[in-house]
Design a protein around this nucleic acid. Structure first.
Length: 584
RNA sequence: GCACCCGUAGCUUAAUUGGAUAGAGUUCUGCCCUCCGAAGGCAGAGGUUACAGGUUCGAAUCCUGUCGGGUGCACCA
C-alpha cells in the first residue's frame, strides 16, 4: 500500500466535508494538492500544500483551512500530530508503528511489495533500441536499450500492460548499401573477379558476413545479376545481423516482445490507411518547401511534393511524405508504423530515441496526434550521448573506419549488471560519462557496488542469524510476525520510512517515465542501511543480532530482510541480479 | 540562419514535476575495526542554480530576452 495515497485520500475527504459545512466555493483545485515526504525529515513524515493551494480561491487564510483539516486528521488512529508552519505547509506525523507495519508488509508480500495498480492494466507500447540492422550494436546503443527496458519493467510494476518493441528498419538505401558491401565481400571471399565497385560501407564484420554467405550459397551467386542477388543477400544479411543484435540484447537481459519489420509494414500497405486519415482531416497537400536559410544544400531544387501539415501541430515546417521517385519517405513509413501500433490497441506509446533524433520528435508526435484525432499519447524519450572513458581518458570512436566500440566488447569487460546500473545513474536527458575503470571499482563512488554491497551485507546478517538461532524459523513469513514495534532507534525508523516509500517511488517514476529514480532510490536505501550498520559498530546494543535477546533480534532481522527485499525488487526493475555475497 | 535539448559546489551530478535551509559522490583534512563484511561509517568545507527581467504565497523547475555548449535541418535512416 502507498501510505501517501492513503493520507491524500483522507485529506481530500476532510476538505470535501469542510467545503460543504463551511460553504466554500464549489470548484476547488483539489487535483493540485500534493502529499509527499518533506525534503527535510525534521518537517515531519508527510507534508501537504493543501492550505496554500486552496487559500486564494476560497479567499481565506491558510490557517482557516488547516483547522478543519487537522481536526479531521487527528481523528485517525495512525496520526500522531498535524501542524501548520509558514508559509502554509501542513506537516503530518504518523505513529512509528504505521511505518514499522510496512516492514512486516514487505516480508509478507516479498517482491510484490511496491507493485501498483496505478496503470490499471492500460496497454503501453515501449519502443526502444530499434538500431538499424546494418551492423552490430555499439556502446552508444546501450543507453537507450537499458533505459527502455528499465522503463518497461517499471511500468509493469506500476500496473501497466507493457509490450517491448523493436522497430527493424529493414528497408531503404542504407540496407541496400550494406547488402552491396556484403556481396562485395562475398566475391572477395571467393577470390572472384569483382566487377562491382567496393562500397564505402565500413566495418570488419562485413567480411564475416561475406564468408557466411559463401558457406550458405557456395558460388551460386557469383555470376548473378544484381536484381537476382540483391534480395537474397539483403534478407540473409539482415537476418544474421539481427541474430547478433538479439544475442547482445539477451546478454544484457533484454527480451523484446515484438520485432516489427518496416518491410512488413510497407508490404501491408498501412500507409494508405494512415494517409486516408490524414487526408480526411485535411492535413495532406502538394506543395513546395523553401530551403533552410543559412544552410542551403548545394543540390537544392524547388520541387512540388506531397506534404504533411505538421506545422499545424507545432512543427517548424511541413514534412514530405513522398520521395521524388514517388515512393514513401521514412517518415511516412513511421507514421504507418505508429498507426499499426494504434490499431493493435496501443493508445499510449513511448519511443526511446538517441539525442541525434531530437529534430524528429515534433513531426512524429504531430503525426500520432493527427492519426488518432488527438486521442493517442506518444512520449518520446531522448537519451543523451555516452562518453566512453578509460581511466578519465576518452576512448576514441571512429565511425568512419568502422572501429567503434561494440556493445559486446563493453559487456565482456564490465558485464551486464554494471552496464545496466550505470546507464541509469543519470537522467536520460543528461550526457553520461562511462568510465571502464571507475565502474569496476569497488568503492563508495561506484553506485552499483555500493547497492550490491548493501544487499550482500543484509544477506550476510541473515546467514549469521541462522547459525546463531539454529532452532528459530527465520522465513519471511515468520519474520513478518515478529514484534516489529520493538524497533525504536532513530536510524531504524529512518530506514523503515524509506522502505515504506518504495511504492511511491515506483508510482512517481513510472508516471514521469524516469527509471533513473529507481537507481537513486536504491542508493539511498543502501546508504541508510550502511549507516545503520555502522551504528552497531559504535554501540553494541544497536547491532542486528543480539545473542541473548531473541525478540529484538527477530525484529531487527525482519528490517534487514525487508531491506534486502526492497533492494532486490528495485534491482529487478533495473535488470540487475542482486548478489548474496561479494566475496570471491 | 532556424528549431530542439542542456547549463546546478573545482569535477561528475540529484532535487519528490512549482515547495520549506538546493541534496549526494569525488577531492582535501581529522576521527571510528576486541565487535553481525572497514569493499563501510562520522565530522568539517565547498553555491548569486550561466546572466537579466517576469508570473505568485513560493522558481533550479514555468514565460521572455541574452550568453555559452550539444544535436538536427527537402529527398537518407
Amino acid at each position: 500500500m502507498n501510505i501517501f495515497n492513503w493520507i491524500k485520500y483522507e485529506i481530500k475527504a476532510c476538505l470535501r466535508s469542510a467545503a460543504i459545512s463551511k460553504k466554500w466555493p464549489e470548484k476547488l483545485p483539489f487535483e493540485r494538492i500534493t502529499v509527499e515526504p518533506p525534503r527535510d525529515a525534521s518537517n515531519g513524515d508527510i507534508a501537504t500544500n493543501a492550505a496554500m493551494i486552496l487559500a486564494k480561491p476560497i479567499g481565506i487564510d491558510p490557517y482557516d483551512i488547516y483547522l478543519p483539516l487537522a481536526e479531521g486528521l487527528k481523528k485517525l488512529e495512525s496520526v500522531k500530530s498535524v501542524e501548520i508552519v509558514e508559509p502554509g505547509f501542513i506537516n503530518i506525523r504518523l505513529l512509528s508503528g504505521v511505518w514499522l507495519a510496512q516492514v512486516s508488509k514487505i516480508l509478507e508480500f516479498g517482491q510484490n511489495f511496491g507493485s501498483s495498480r496505478m496503470g490499471a492494466g492500460r496497454k503501453v507500447n515501449v519502443e526502444y533500441v530499434s538500431a538499424n540492422p546494418t551492423g552490430p550494436l555499439h556502446a552508444a546503443h546501450a543507453r537507450g536499450a537499458v533505459f527502455g527496458d528499465a522503463l518497461a519493467s517499471l511500468l509493469e510494476k506500476a500496473g501497466f500492460q507493457v509490450v517491448r518493441e523493436y522497430y527493424v528498419n529493414d528497408v531503404g538505401s542504407q540496407i541496400d548499401k550494406m547488402a552491396h558491401s556484403v556481396y562485395f565481400r562475398y566475391l572477395e571471399a571467393l577470390n572472384a573477379n569483382s566487377n562491382i565497385p567496393e562500397c564505402d560501407y565500413p566495418g570488419e564484420y562485413l567480411k564475416d558476413l561475406g564468408k557466411a554467405l559463401v558457406m550458405r550459397e557456395g558460388d551460386n551467386l557469383i555470376n548473378a545479376l544484381e536484381q537476382e542477388w540483391l534480395e537474397p543477400v539483403r534478407t540473409f544479411a539482415v537476418e544474421l545481423i539481427m541474430t547478433n543484435i538479439m544475442k547482445d540484447l539477451l546478454t544484457m537481459g533484454i527480451h523484446m516482445d515484438r520485432f516489427s519489420s518496416e518491410r512488413a509494414i510497407v508490404k501491408k500497405n498501412v500507409i494508405s490507411r494512415a494517409l486516408a486519415k490524414l487526408e480526411e482531416a485535411g492535413l495532406v497537400y502538394r506543395g513546395v518547401l523553401t530551403p533552410p536559410k543559412g544552410k542551403c544544400p548545394d543540390d537544392w531544387e524547388p520541387r512540388p511534393q506531397l506534404l504533411f501539415r505538421s506545422t499545424k501541430f507545432g512543427d517548424d515546417v511541413d514534412r514530405p511524405l513522398q520521395k521524388p521517385d514517388g515512393s514513401w519517405t521514412y517518415f511516412s513509413n513511421d507514421i504507418a508504423y505508429h498507426m499499426d501500433k494504434v490499431e493493435r490497441g496501443y493508445m499510449d506509446m513511448i519511443d526511446v530515441f538517441g539525442a541525434d533524433h531530437g529534430g524528429y520528435v515534433n513531426r512524429i508526435k504531430a503525426a500520432v496526434s493527427a492519426i488518432t484525432a488527438g486521442q493517442g499519447n506518444l512520449d518520446v524519450k531522448l537519451c543523451q550521448i555516452v562518453h566512453m572513458l578509460d581511466g578519465g581518458k576518452p576512448v576514441r570512436m571512429s565511425k568512419r573506419s568502422g572501429n567503434f566500440v561494440t556493445l559486446s566488447e563493453v559487456l565482456d569487460t564490465v558485464g551486464p549488471d554494471v552496464l545496466r546500473f550505470i546507464m541509469l545513474t543519470r537522467r536520460n536527458d543528461q550526457t553520461l560519462e562511462f568510465d571502464y575503470r571507475q565502474v569496476s571499482e569497488q568503492s563508495r563512488n561506484n553506485p552499483v557496488f555500493y547497492v550490491q554491497y548493501a544487499h550482500a551485507r543484509a544477506c550476510s546478517v541473515i546467514r549469521n542469524a541462522k547459525e546463531i538461532f539454529v532452532a528459530e524459523d527465520l522465513s519471511d513469513f515468520a519474520l513478518s510476525q515478529a514484534e516489529i514495534n520493538l524497533l525504536t532507534d532513530h536510524n531504524e525508523l529512518k530506514l523503515s520510512k524509506l522502505l515504506a516509500s518504495w511504492p511511491r517511488v515506483v508510482e512517481s517514476a513510472a508516471s514521469s517515465h524516469e527509471p533513473h529514480r529507481v537507481a537513486f532510490y536504491l542508493a539511498n536505501v543502501a546508504a541508510a542501511f550502511h549507516e545503520l550498520w555502522s551504528k552497531g559498530r559504535e554501540n553494541a546494543r544497536l547491532r542486528f543480532i543480539l545473542k541473548n535477546e531473541r525478540e529484538i533480534t527477530m525484529a531487527r532481522i525482519a528490517l534487514v530482510r525487508a531491506t534486502a527485499t526492497v533492494i532486490a525488487s528495485g534491482l529487478k526493475i533495473i535488470g540487475v541480479t542482486p548478489m548474496d555475497e561479494l566475496r570471491g
